[in-house]
Nucleic acid binder design. Sequence first.
RNA 1: AGAGACAGUCGGACGGUUGCGUGGGGCAACUCACGAGGAAAGUCCGAGCACCGCAGAGCAAGAGUGCAGGCUAACGGCCUGUGAAGGCGACUUUAAGGAAAGUGCAACAGAAAUAUACCGCAACGGCAACGUUGUAAGGGUGGAAAUGCAGGGUAAGAGCCUACAAACGUUUUGGCGACAACGCGUUACUGUAAACCCCACUCGGUGCAAGAAAUGAGACAAAAUGCCUGCUCGGCAUCUCGACAUAUUCGCUUGAUACUGUCGGUAACGACAGCAGUAGACAGAUAACCGUCUAUUACAGAACUCGGCUUACAGACUGAACUCUUACA
RNA 2: GCGGAUAUGGCGGAAUUGGCAGACGCGCUAGACUUAGGAUCUAGUGUCAUCGACGUGGGGGUUCAAGUCCCUUUAUCCGCA
Length: 110
Amino acid sequence: MKSINRLKKNYQYNYVYKHAQSVSDKNFVMLYCVSNVKVTKVGFSVSKKYGKAVMRNRIRRQMKAAVAAKISQIKDGYNIIFIPRKNQSYLFAEITESFDLLLHKADLIL
RNA sequence: AGAGACAGUCGGACGGUUGCGUGGGGCAACUCACGAGGAAAGUCCGAGCACCGCAGAGCAAGAGUGCAGGCUAACGGCCUGUGAAGGCGACUUUAAGGAAAGUGCAACAGAAAUAUACCGCAACGGCAACGUUGUAAGGGUGGAAAUGCAGGGUAAGAGCCUACAAACGUUUUGGCGACAACGCGUUACUGUAAACCCCACUCGGUGCAAGAAAUGAGACAAAAUGCCUGCUCGGCAUCUCGACAUAUUCGCUUGAUACUGUCGGUAACGACAGCAGUAGACAGAUAACCGUCUAUUACAGAACUCGGCUUACAGACUGAACUCUUACA
RNA sequence: GCGGAUAUGGCGGAAUUGGCAGACGCGCUAGACUUAGGAUCUAGUGUCAUCGACGUGGGGGUUCAAGUCCCUUUAUCCGCA
């Protein structure tokens, strides 16, 4: 995942939280909104309640890997945040499946 | 053979595809090197470093430490000892100064809780009930009742006397010392300091979001305001200020570094020589998937850096041959 | 990163300087009253092998005695930026 495709600043996250529409399934929540830049930026948020640092890092990396595989298929000009809901570990395939579903629901796939 | 005790190590490996961070090379495409832990954790201590001018002086308050000697940059850490407690033993554990400076507290029970005489025992008086005196053996209460036990002694008793033991004080000897051994004296002074306190020693504050540079916006032309944690003294800054905003650069990683050997030391550790490599991000890299190895791996993720402590931990392994029990020779 | 607080029956919340743990309120259970329900009144209500023992988030320690003092640990909450 390229550095340009990431959400970086706290104010960027706050903007998305304020203006976002949300889509969710039983495992993940996806927040998205239209950006004023042409590039799509993706961020990940894992709460402290999810687990200890190792658990949080692992789910974040898996999510990153899942998004990196599809970044070329996603429409340009959106800010997206993914949040895991449950306190459990996932298989990589489950994550990919969920993300596909969510992106289709939100109609962000080219 | 069984059961223990001690010291320590590792903590997945290899291959494939696709990726990430930092640094080097290259005009570029790209390529090369390196890339989490023993606890990175908890934040319980100690330092470095930075700023508060130097980190200052005195007083007060507050906090911490508490057997001895040593090690260390320092420490509340470590080592070797001493005492005490536990274990048949190898060995383990230990906040272990002062209760004879003072204050407080000790419920209930019990006659009495730091001072005493309820029952009792004995003598004397009395017909008797009982009284007076002596006593602290025995009884019961309690965590604790003027050391325990045996003999002598006595009206009954009592360290009143003696032996053994206990506690305390002390001469001598040994030890750097904590302390130990022997002798002598005494039998008083309940416990609690992890209650206040006393004694000895230590401690200025804030923390890398410290702080320095840069850019931009803004404010003020004011001698009073702010800072050095309370008070007193003493001092500093303000003709620019400047975390108000940006998060661009620095701080940022080679350090009281690890390993190996020799020497010194019981050891912690030190000296010398050799050799080894070096995460440094800023929404934050070290990954995703697959295959093989019996295999779905424990606890767990650096954020300025070190030294400790504490806590968590699947499984695998090593050393010295240290103790006890049983069997056989 | 730095700093602070809390934890007691089913719930809220007491317990003085260490001295009988569960005061008080809510809830729950049973009974009374009522045709019935509500309200009201009365009694009970931590666990167990029920003499008694164990119980204040978990584990140790000091003390004759610990909810209270000390150490350690877990969870939750809050503050600074």
